[in-house]
């Protein structure tokens, strides 16, 4: 059972306080978008064995959404950060690269 540090309230929260929200950094495609863009937004999800970026909500705590970078194989957590961003913080990306030299990057 995971523990993630909520970057919004600073609590080390165990999984039962959290609600998962799937893949992070999706770009929304709304009315009038192409079939391809909409399909990618709605359905195309990564399922890597390794580094993954996810949405979590501190549902039983401060109620805020945040994002987490995590290894799906070892469950190592590289970091958490607020949801108000379209891409992971640069220093987190550097940290992951140092720990996982084979990682192809977040996109």
């Amino acid at each position: 059972m995971l523990i993630l540090e909520c970057p919004c309230c600073g609590v080390m929260a165990e999984e039962t306080e959290l609600a998962p929200g799937g893949e992070a950094h999706l770009k929304r495609f709304g009315a009038g978008s192409s079939d391809e863009d909409f399909e990618t937004y709605m359905f195309a999800r990564k399922n890597p064995k390794g580094v993954h970026f996810e949405r979590w909500r501190h549902a039983y705590g401060c109620g805020k959404w945040f994002l987490a970078a995590r290894c799906t194989a070892t469950l190592e957590v590289f970091g958490t950060y607020p949801a108000q961003t379209t891409e992971p913080p640069a220093e987190l990306v550097e940290k992951i690269k140092a720990k996982r030299p084979d990682w192809k990057g977040w996109k």
């Binding site: 609600a19 929304r28 909500r57 549902a59 109620g63 805020k64 959404w65 949801a83 108000q84």
Partner: peptide, 13 residues
């Protein structure tokens, strides 16, 4: 309520 907050926090912040 969670749905509203999701869009407010994560898309239209």
């Amino acid at each position: 309520h969670a749905w509203m907050e999701d869009w407010l926090q994560c898309e239209w912040w």
